[in-house]
Design a protein around this nucleic acid. Structure first.
Lengths: 356, 356
DNA sequence: CTGAAAGCGCTTACAG
DNA sequence: CTGAAAGCGCTTACAG
């Protein structure tokens, strides 16, 4: 607010205009902007002060056109924001800013996935990061498209893609561990709540469950029970309620339940409790994501923490390395270990539970 | 995948290169890209097919440099993502896409607020939307900066700024209504949970509470009780717990509580219940934001819905209008009415409650 | 240390 | 209907 009134009125739109004002050549100004060596300290000082006074910002587009990388990373998000997707975006934005990049987040509208990538390419972004659930074949096509253009990319939490740059939570190991934990507590019949559908993340998780069962010499098809197909999936919380309702008074009710996420688990927990079943005395329950909501129930919810900070740190490291040294970037899938967070919702299998 | 192998290898980086490939002049290609009239249908067809085959995307920066607006809207978000901020961003992104704009969301790191705006200006965005809590004086400066550059802007949910383009929930009216509701139920002593701090949204909300009390001839300083200053604010949920703990066994405990948000309200609800107090028999409780979590408690939580769809629709309308017709854009604050959602957590004041 | 000139990839009058 | 030419706002050799 201490600027002279005259310069406040003036909108400077080009270095030419600005250079004239400061009494320098365009190239001199450009050199200051790009912090090139061999400039008189007084010149640098003069330019900086004039920029502060006039609020002039060089046109990033023109800058890029003459060879500067854009320092923009496009983030392609799935169609709708889940809490974990948001957490990832938030952490990503922070870390990319620290690394000197700007984040351009775009949601892919259903069926317009390629538009997003095309738009990123037209903006000549330095890299693209995919967060969320995407159809595998199409994702593979987008990746090929980016690779052809020599644009860096990382796929976050979408495994099963073969030789691509990816960082993903080790869901297989996570569910192996969760399942082993339940087996050790004596559970032999496990209900699945919402753990179905065409998502690779779900495929991975079931894979882990099956592995743990197999390691105990158990037959998954006998141990696992799912009612998912019977109900339409809407709100996670309500879906959990609905599924719990369908299980509550079964004669051979599972003694433990694995939910697709925390919301579903909480819905189920509240419904089970409303029907007089005690947790963990009558049944155990495990969520996924370790969101805040896990602390809000009685008992608190055992869940699996995605270690988002670590996932994103690995993602940023990967994309920055790809951008800075184009050569040594062989496709590589980085696995991030999850962390099982034990709380009150899991306990020993009920003595009254019917064993097979 | 049905492209000829040759064109798959080739990366086309300019219209010149592309035009040569198609056998046209650069201007002809440009005209097709810009959907200008007077082109042979076969020419258009030829260009489109070649674009699909080669994956060529014209450089958006060069395009803009020659006079095209960028069709990018910068969204400046506060430092950290609250659920409502995310919901707003999500809806905004969808609506802006529909309106033909790209969303460039950036979080302002603490103290680097002006960097975000400067970056938007350097990218020559068509408009800037502010979502979240920002320091008023600095926000006013950023707005002045944008106005000087003739860049459209809208401030979302940050009232009290005087003559600026803004869309904001009518928090005053909302809290007037909530408070009137509690007064009608017989409550005369109201506890505030987290409703304090330097945010304009909070100032507005307290304003509404006070107005409703005054309309009933009540003295706010006697009716309202806050313990906020006694505790450090960390996680909303825990903060709600802590505050409820501090109120639970007071002799002159308020019979109703207004929480700053749903998480705080749920924390308080669970703590009150854990201490043997019944809701709504012993005390009433009101949240804010009407998030999913309101449905997860017993009883369900009365809350205030922000009507985010309407807020964002008004925001998009405003910015698009500013961009398309620079003239008639007088600064205007648009107020969006909130909706009180009554659920089980509010009821008549307890007969045992001590009246003043 | 500084300036004049070329060129990045587009669009848009202006001729044909 | 199409092409040659100018110019958008920068950066970067190249001279001085």
């Amino acid at each position: 607010m201490s600027q002279p009134a005259a310069s406040r009125q003036l909108i400077i739109r080009s270095t030419a205009q600005f250079a004239r004002l400061v009494g320098l050549s365009r190239s001199a100004v450009s050199r200051v902007l790009n912090e090139q060596p061999g400039l008189r300290a007084s010149t640098i000082e003069r330019v900086h002060r004039a920029m502060a006074e006039t609020g002039f910002t060089p046109n990033a587009h023109a800058r890029h056109l003459r060879g500067k990388p854009t320092a923009v990373i496009g983030v392609c998000m799935e169609n709708f924001f889940t809490p974990t997707a948001v957490a990832k975006l938030s952490v990503l934005q922070r870390q990319l800013t620290e690394a000197g990049y700007t984040t351009l987040a775009e949601m892919s509208q259903p069926g317009a996935f390629d538009n997003v990538v095309r738009h990123f390419l037209s903006l000549r972004v330095d890299g693209v990061i995919f967060i969320g659930h995407f159809e595998q074949v199409e994702l593979a096509q987008r990746i090929a498209q980016l690779a052809r253009h020599g644009t860096a990319y990382v796929v976050v939490d979408n495994s099963g893609l073969g030789r691509v740059q990816a960082v993903t939570l080790n869901r297989i190991a996570a569910m192996r561990e969760v399942t082993a934990h339940l087996l050790k507590l004596g559970h032999r019949r496990i209900g699945l709540l919402g753990l179905s559908g065409p998502f690779q993340t779900v495929v991975d998780r079931l894979h882990g469950v099956n592995e743990a069962l197999a390691a105990h010499g158990l037959d998954p098809s006998r141990c696992l029970v799912s009612h998912d197909a019977r109900f339409e999936r809407t709100d996670h919380f309500e879906y959990g309620r609905t599924l719990a309702h369908s299980f509550a008074h079964l004669r051979d009710r599972p003694t433990a339940f694995l939910a697709v996420n925390d919301d579903t688990a909480v819905g189920a927990l509240l419904e089970f409790q409303a029907r007089g079943l005690r947790v963990p005395e009558d049944l155990s329950l495990v969520g996924f994501n370790n969101q805040n909501i896990c602390l809000m129930t009685r008992p608190k919810l055992t869940s699996v923490d995605q270690q988002i900070d670590k996932t994103i740190a690995a993602t940023v490291r990967s994309i920055v390395r790809q951008i800075e040294q184009r050569e040594n970037s062989r496709p590589q899938v980085r696995l991030i270990p999850a962390q099982l967070v034990l709380r009150g919702s899991t306990g020993p299998a009920s003595r009254h539970a019917r064993k097979r």
